[in-house]
Amino acid sequence: MNSVLGDKRAIAILLGPALLVYTLVMLVPIIWSTGYTLFSGNAVTGFEFVGISNFVTFFTDPAAFDAVVFTLKYAIVLTIGQIAIGYLLSLLYVFWLKRASGVIRTLVFFPVVLPTVAVSLLFQRLFESAPAIGPVNTFLEAVGLHSVDWFGSAGTAFWVIVMMDIWRSAGFYAVLLYAGIIDIPDEILESARIDGATGWQLVRQIVLPLSLPVLLSSIIFSINGTLKVFDSVLALTNGGPGSGTTPLTLYMFRTSFTYADYGYGSTIAFMLTLICLVVTIFIFRSTRRDVTKG
């Protein structure tokens, strides 16, 4: 039987095409791109071997440093934001809305499927200050505050990006976390209630520890996605004002395609991959330790 399910020819037919495309269009380029880090130049002018000088440049380049700082800051703030709000939403679904939560869940989820560029263009208008005054600034003026030129400084532009991406993704994380909380056995919640646990006590001492696994995997998904932020920044602020909101992905894109420096572009991409890997491993390790402790 195993000789039939281990038929080499069938394996080749079924797996071959996928593996071939994947190897040629992803694996080979990944290795190729790693090779580029040792060169300077581009596809049109040709390449010149420069050794590790691209990495030296990366660690001394203030623009690269700013991009790393922005990327990490964005990833941390957004991960905390979308997981926290997603978690609160999921608690709302499970404990207050209960069976009626279906419609709300569906409505809050929907921005996830909208194209990022469209949402970004919409948020540009929502936060506009001149010449037309957008809803957000109108609201600020109505409650007696000054309207803000949101895209005028990197600080405020950062928060618009964060708010937009939370708007887009909170419903998604809420559904993800909801699945984890719903899996908690009723008996445990019931017995905790009988023991007198109420409200926040119940959440903190019973629900939170028991939904920790799904919470932690959500954090890993979130970090991994947010470190690669590109679309929302490009479409919303285009990295500006100046280069105040430029993440590594966008810096890589500019270096490669505006300044045609493939070597340095590849180096930035390589460092980004490294950061993703290190962060994921770090979270995996620290969570495993925590779980065994707790």
């Binding site: 992803m26 990944i30 791109s33 580029y36 894109f253 572009g265 991409a269």
Partner: peptide, 16 residues
């Protein structure tokens, strides 16, 4: 592994 790696890693060789 392909899910993890950022798309930026494959852009330049493919462009070439």
């Amino acid at each position: 592994a392909g899910i993890m790696v950022p798309a930026q890693m494959i852009l330049l060789p493919l462009f070439t």
